[in-house]
Design a protein around this nucleic acid. Structure first.
Length: 201
DNA sequence: CGGCCGATCAGCT
DNA sequence: GCTGATCGGCCGA
């Protein structure tokens, strides 16, 4: 139940993406804790990364949070209706981040189910970036939130993860070589990971 | 279980 | 205009 310190997040995004596996994401909604263990992430490397929203230094109203200090939340809407939550890594001015793709639900599971009636099993509640946001009630109102000191959405330390698998990032085929780079990370064999699963060890 | 399709919108990849 | 760092419902097998 100890919070992750900011320096944990002020590193390069690939390091942070690996290190976040096994840590906990906590959302406080109506005074209740909804929480889960992070089991799947993707690293976005910023300016040189064709798949990243900050590719080529792009800096707009939508992605402004990417340029904030490590530990800030970057939330954006995708396909018009879903949301994705990123943990900004690095330091202020460096637009690198880690997309949170899946959680193993631990606390407030009934509340998550109420928000996601389509989920058939607990393993599907937070298996996917849009599903995770729906289950925890994360939307654009939390864009720019402080995940280190904030009260509504924050990160807590968890158990270290021994086996990590890697694979290509999802949905970025347009990004050429960058699409195939092994920048997706998951806890090996964890049933709460989204599909398609990464394979390489 | 796998594949297709519609939903819905901000920034142009 | 077109298209995503997506999901869920519906179809057929």
């Amino acid at each position: 139940l100890t919070r992750l310190p900011r320096d944990f997040l002020r590193r390069d995004s690939e390091t942070v993406a690996r290190a976040l596996l096994g840590q906990r994401l906590v959302r406080v909604l109506d005074g209740q804790r909804l929480a889960g263990r992070i089991v799947e992430t993707e690293a976005y490397l910023g300016v040189p990364d064709r798949a990243a929203h900050a590719y080529g230094g792009r800096h707009t109203a939508r992605n402004a949070s990417l340029y904030a200090d490590g530990g800030t939340a970057y939330v954006y809407r995708i396909y018009g209706l879903h949301h994705c939550l990123n943990v900004v890594a690095g330091v202020e001015g460096v637009p690198v981040a880690v997309l949170l793709r899946a959680l193993a639900p631990e606390e407030g599971i009934a509340a998550m189910r109420a928000r996601r009636p389509a989920a058939r099993r607990d393993a599907e509640l937070c298996a996917g970036p849009g599903r995770l946001c729906a289950a925890l009630g994360v939307d654009l109102a939390l864009d720019g939130a402080d995940l280190v000191e904030g009260e509504a959405l924050f990160l807590e330390g968890g158990a270290p993860v021994a086996d990590v698998v890697t694979g290509p990032r999802v949905g970025v085929d347009y990004a050429g070589e960058w699409a195939r780079a092994p920048l997706r990370f998951a806890v090996a064999g964890d049933p709460h990971v989204s599909r398609p699963r990464p394979d390489r060890a």
